[in-house]
Design a protein around this nucleic acid. Structure first.
Lengths: 225, 225
DNA sequence: AAAAAGCAAGAGCAGTGCTCTCCGAATTTG
DNA sequence: CAAATTCGGAGAGCACTGCTCTTGCTTTTT
């Protein structure tokens, strides 16, 4: 039996999350205030604690949402490229660009997940699964079309469960290019490339290409599109 | 004429910065409170505004300090390797390790400079010079011993003033490896490598080696030391 | 119909950044 | 040397934050 109370609860809960997302996007994570959210949804400040146990819990929910939104965007771009019959490199490029595009469109959300963690904040368990989606996409492409190329000697120890089904010889390389992708987008977003890199879009393409070489994706005929 | 007032002012100013550094390291940037700093140095809360105009200004000073400390550590490591007659790769490795070591020893300071910027916070002019020190070190080594290796096609446009005296063909590669260094250290520090990379020290060595290959540093006989 | 659970409201605590006014002491000016 | 000025410290106050606790009222369950 769905009671009127349960329905009302879901409505308010959704309203709270929606408003929180709005304020996060507009003012950033540091300025996100439970009182302000409560006010905006028509609640008195103390009543919001019936729906969210603390500010940190709210942030955790937003983190999960952000990871999922980014992962979904990247996966959608990958699927679209696949459907269009794109080459491995074409799909690779599509994923890289999708991550950058999403980050530029949602800077506060991106900063929330890839910026400095709040001190004393340990990422809860529910954040780890969505956090791996983008990395997994890269791993999938590498696993299908990459090959270990002669690189630096013995690869360091990687937790085997992290990338099952992937040739252990390219696992470190996969993690390195994943780092490069997020690092490059972060540097652009966080202003580190100001007065350094002018054309950021084509710079990302350049880095994506170099990364594709590094993990041994087959070379294309025409070069970047 | 050095008056007693001036001397007293400098003493309090130094005390404020020192205490702020302490609190930053202990509680993180988000928890840094002007009132708490004032209390600790024996000032009433309003009096601290005679020395620092705002919380943001204090943070800016700490940012500059952090950039300088990191840059100095990296440069010292480089100089020491140089004095010990290390190869280009040996010096390269020394710089990479120094950055990681400093970051692990000063996580709050590192997060302050490479984490997500405070919303609405535009890095002031005085932060850009110290921010480039680590990048410059890499550029120096690359400029002396690197060579453009056959990579992805046309390099993207880079502001020429950013890396003067460097072959334009490797400038993008230099920026990419700088991004990789900071990105790798950041990922480790921010918990992105939890359950993924087990031996982070040797993983960094691996990435450093791959980066050295990428910018064409001459290969060594013995491999990583 | 009675009991239990759920939710909103209000007051309150301890903390924050920042401003303004006041006052005494140090410094510069005449 | 005395007067004028500057400067630092103190206190009160404003508007805000996260969070807790108690008090009522309404919905749901027994």
């Amino acid at each position: 039996m769905v009671t009127a109370r349960q329905r009302a609860r879901e409505v308010t809960e959704r309203a709270i999350l929606e408003e929180a997302r709005r304020q996060l996007a507009e003012y950033g994570a540091a300025a996100l205030s439970l009182r302000a959210v409560a006010r905006a949804v028509g609640l008195v400040s103390s009543a919001i604690y019936r729906y969210v146990s603390s500010r940190e819990e709210l942030l955790t929910r937003l983190i999960v949402e952000a990871y999922d939104a980014l992962g979904e965007q990247a996966e959608a771009a990958h699927a679209a490229a696949m459907a269009a019959g794109a080459s491995p490199r074409g799909r690779w490029r599509a994923v890289w660009r999708a991550v950058r595009t999403w980050a530029l469109a949602h800077p506060a959300e991106y900063s929330l997940i890839y910026g400095s963690p709040v001190p004393g904040y340990a990422a809860p368990v529910e954040t780890v699964a969505p956090a791996t989606r983008v990395g997994w996409l890269l791993v999938v492409i590498i696993g299908e079309h990459g090959r270990a190329i002669p690189g630096p000697g013995a690869p360091p120890v990687i937790a085997p469960t992290a990338v099952p089904g992937l040739d252990a010889a390219i696992a470190p390389a996969a993690i390195a290019v994943w780092t490069q992708l997020i690092g490059t987008v972060s540097f652009e977003l966080f202003g580190q490339y100001d007065n350094v890199v002018t054309d950021r879009a084509s710079y990302l393409d350049y880095v994506a290409e170099a990364a594709a070489d590094f993990v041994g994706l087959p070379v294309e005929d025409g070069g970047p599109a």
